[in-house]
Amino acid sequence: MEMSSPDFWIALGQIIMIDILLGGDNAVVIALASRRLPDAQRKKAIFWGIFGAVALRVVLIFFALQLLKIPFLKIIGGLLLLYIGIKLLMPQDDGGHDIDASTHLFGAVKTIVIADAVMSVDNVIGIAGAAKDHLGLVIFGLLFSIPIIIWGSRFVLTLMDRFPLVIVFGAALLGWIGGGMIVDDVVLKDWATPYGAPLHYGAAAAGALFVVAVGKLLARRAPVPAAHAPLVDLASQDIATPAEPTPINKPSDPS
């Protein structure tokens, strides 16, 4: 890929999108995990958590390009991206893998380390998949993810909240990269080579369609989570209400 080719710029755009999708909320996850720590420790936990998220990406990216040459790893990586894409479209889980907002430093550190590892792996695989072995793009993707992790969360959350289409596009993009990555695996090389680019793009398109279709289907089946249902009032007794709030007894016909 040359800088003059449109492929280069498409890959660049994809990498930026992936960094936003998969890096933008890392700081939020870390903050949620350290929420219950005393103030001084919380600041430390957040700092080291974000430091870890950045450092892990640097380490992983050096291995990623080598690792992806190992048989089956692109298939696994591609499947992981498909899973992440579907997950992006699904509503919030009720149970399962809950990060615990531990009151002990050790507990918080443990959850942050695990979250950091998973968040970095999917980000790095996404970058590597979009960059298609172009080292310059990989390094760009890595560097670009750093400011997004550190400063981007507010922007990313607002963006995704106000423009829900970003989520659908993001999921389709993850499916596109994942699908293309699977047929690029070394194991499939002999089989895939004669079909060339059409196979790659066909698989990419199939991946995108698969993620959006499955994600939408599962999202429709899942019960609407409370937070997104209209008018769930989270204010509770723990907020000091002034004594005896006057009940509303407004006539139903305001005229």
Partner: peptide, 16 residues
């Protein structure tokens, strides 16, 4: 603002 990003969905329950 609802937090709808993927890593939060992976690691944080609806409850927390």
């Amino acid at each position: 603002a609802p937090i709808v990003t993927v890593n939060v969905k992976l690691f944080v329950s609806q409850d927390s």
